Simulated scan of single mutants.
Amino acid sequence: MVFKFTIDDVVNKHIPPNRLDRLPNIIGRFLGAHKTTPKHDYLIWLEIFLGSFCGIALIEGVFKSNTAFTAHNAPLIIASYGASAILCFNASQAPLAQPRNVLIGHFISALIGICIQKLFSLSERGRDNYWASGALSVAVASVAMSILNCVHPPAGASALLPSADESIRAMSWWYLPAHLVSSVLIISVALITGNIIRKYPVYWWTPAPVGKAKVEPEPEPAPAPASAPVPSEEENKLSSSAKAESISSSEDVKEGITSVPGLKYIQISGTETLVPADYDLDELTTEWLNEMRNKLQSLIPKNDSPV
């Protein structure tokens, strides 16, 4: 689902453009700055197996060792990272599995979960109703992730655990740095294993344009012809209907995007999106084009809508 407002509407113009392609190849590759070629399924299965095993084992190894978390009742692993491993290593091309979604999604959800649990803990009646605390935490975290454009489904468990698990409640505020460490570790493993034969991440912040928009000079209007015959109303109607029939017979409309044969550019307006017929649209590009159209549509005054 494409929301009409996310935090990206405010911050994207302040985000610098991606410059990973300027890094040395060996560094840029493990940050996702490379192109991929199709691989056999058994190689991808092997990568998924190794990535999932190493990612979970690394987190467990850190929390099993004698660290600052040991004295604060840290579990062997926060359960929600089992689901994150499936996304990061199996569905690594999905928007929900990108580093921004993993890191910010888990942290925001954990923060909301521990804050609401602390509020319920202030009274005996609240402590008797942690079921409501857990439900409220997941609901608030879900909305917050949508607004911040960092939806990560496993983070729902991160919001729920402070209310549902007594050992997590014993961690208190140490639950938050535990999430930061876990997210960084699983992303680090995904950057290594996910860039051997595939590519991870697809993007670091957003697939949408970032930075300040460049203001291009307006082209000078072309001189009007000296004399041109003015078509009659009947000719205008005939030419419009013929043009509409010609376009409708050659265009292919899919998911709100119209593919036009012979078109050499992409045109986005508040009412339609036109792309070349031979342009292969993936899921991320389709979602971004529809988001741009919706944003432009929201700028059109209601009284300017066609009659």
Rank of each mutant, 00 (worst) to 15 (best):
M1H: 03
F5H: 13
V10G: 03
K13D: 06
H14L: 15
N18Q: 15
R19P: 08
D21T: 13
I27F: 15
L31S: 05
L31T: 13
A33V: 02
K35F: 13
T37H: 01
T37F: 00
P38M: 08
H40L: 09
D41V: 00
D41F: 12
W45A: 08
I48K: 15
F49T: 15
G51P: 13
S52W: 13
S52D: 02
S52G: 10
A57W: 06
N66D: 01
N66G: 04
A68K: 03
P75F: 10
I77N: 00
I78K: 03
A79R: 05
Y81R: 13
G82H: 00
I86W: 15
L87R: 06
N90W: 03
S92W: 10
Q93T: 12
Q93P: 00
P95V: 01
L96N: 05
Q98C: 06
P99T: 13
R100I: 13
R100D: 08
G105M: 09
H106W: 10
I108N: 05
L111M: 13
I114V: 13
C115Q: 10
I116G: 12
S121E: 14
L122F: 12
S123C: 07
G126K: 14
D128M: 14
D128I: 01
A132K: 15
S133E: 08
G134D: 05
G134N: 06
A135S: 15
V140P: 04
S142T: 15
M145R: 11
V151K: 02
P154G: 14
G156V: 07
A157V: 09
A159E: 08
A164L: 15
A164S: 13
S167I: 01
I168A: 04
L176D: 08
L176W: 12
V181I: 14
V181Q: 04
V181R: 07
S182M: 04
I186N: 10
L191Q: 09
I197F: 11
R198E: 12
P201T: 05
P201D: 11
W204Q: 07
W205F: 12
T206E: 02
T206C: 03
T206M: 07
V210S: 02
A213M: 05
K214S: 14
E216G: 03
P217G: 06
E220M: 07
A222T: 09
P223K: 03
P225W: 12
S227H: 07
S227K: 07
V230S: 07
E234W: 09
K243N: 13
K243S: 14
E245W: 10
S246N: 12
S248T: 11
S248V: 10
S248W: 05
S249Y: 10
V253D: 00
K254D: 00
K254L: 05
K254T: 04
E255A: 08
E255I: 04
E255M: 03
V260C: 00
P261I: 02
I266P: 00
I266G: 02
I266K: 03
Q267Y: 11
T271D: 12
D280M: 06
L284C: 03
T286C: 00
E287V: 10
E287F: 04
W288Y: 08
N290R: 12
N290I: 00
M292T: 09
N294H: 03
I300A: 04
I300S: 01
I300E: 05
P301Q: 10
K302G: 10
K302C: 04
P306V: 11
